[in-house]
């Protein structure tokens, strides 16, 4: 299974393609180099700010969570819908590649993007942590595992949306709408409708209970050391949701094959 999905999965070609896309097709183009230098300069600048103003790692983790919501969907929204749009889907389906390998290969593309963002932010967070004694690097690790696990949910959900949509733009719109509604609209609705009914402290408890999976709510608890089991509960939920979305995506692919040729679904 490990070999089929990871080391021997031909779909890992997606990682190479993504790398090339990020650096400009055909290798390191001047524009790619300029952008990379600019990102590096920005990173060094923020690092300097963190040292000078003793910025807390939580601040970076917040920003990282926001970036995950913003940047992960564009990495994956074309993964399946795009194949259908450019008519390469049928060619892929007639090969003996399994739906699990397709899903895993596409998902690793998202995982790679998450890892790149995580590595960039880990440096910032470690500097922030070092500037505020007592130095506790495990706090940064905890934040990163938490943020990373939420990013996996976003990646898996984008993949699912891409398997549903006929057009990749529709998949991207679906993911952003879902994120916007669940992370921004619903909390606002809660505070507008539910909060006046409670008059005070209890509403926060209800809010935290209802939105226990909201990454910013959960992260607040984690940063304030109020989180049950140090955030493991939420992380377990995120990992579970990721697995659920990935299995659903696989089911979608198998289902679309089964509808056309039942014996060929695998």
């Amino acid at each position: 299974m490990w070999r089929s999905l990871v080391t021997g999965n031909p779909m890992l070609i997606e990682l190479k393609r993504m790398g090339r896309r990020m650096l400009g097709s055909g290798g390191l183009r001047p524009l790619g180099i300029v952008v990379s230098v600019l990102i590096l300069a920005l990173w060094v600048f923020i690092l300097g700010l963190a040292r000078a103003y003793e910025l807390e790692p939580e601040m970076f983790a917040w920003f990282e969570l926001f970036l995950f919501c913003l940047l992960i969907p564009p990495f994956l929204y074309t993964s399946i819908a795009g194949e259908k749009e450019r008519k390469s889907w049928d060619i892929l389906l007639v090969t003996p590649v399994s739906s699990a390998q397709i899903v895993a290969g596409k998902f690793f593309m998202g995982v790679a993007a998450i890892m790149v963002i995580s590595v960039l932010f880990s440096g910032l967070m470690l500097v922030g942590e070092a500037s505020l004694p007592p130095y506790d690097p495990w706090r940064v690790v905890r934040f990163q595992v938490f943020a990373g696990s939420f990013a996996l949910v976003v990646a898996a959900f984008t993949l699912l949306a891409s398997s549903w949509a006929k057009r990749s733009v529709a998949a991207l719109a679906t993911v952003y709408t879902a994120l916007f509604v669940s992370l921004a609209v619903l909390p606002v609705v809660f505070w507008t409708i539910v909060d006046p009914l409670y008059h005070g402290y209890e509403s926060s408890e209800v809010y935290e209970t209802v939105f226990f999976l909201h990454p910013f709510v959960a992260f607040d608890k984690l940063a304030g050391r109020e989180s049950t089991y140090g955030g493991l509960f939420e992380i377990a939920w995120y990992v579970g949701l990721t697995a659920f979305f990935l299995l659903w995506t696989r089911h979608r692919i198998r289902g679309s094959v089964r509808r056309k040729f039942p014996g060929a679904a695998r």
Partner: peptide, 8 residues
Amino acid sequence: FFGLYDDT
């Protein structure tokens, strides 16, 4: 009609 994988 078929598409190829760009950046490959």
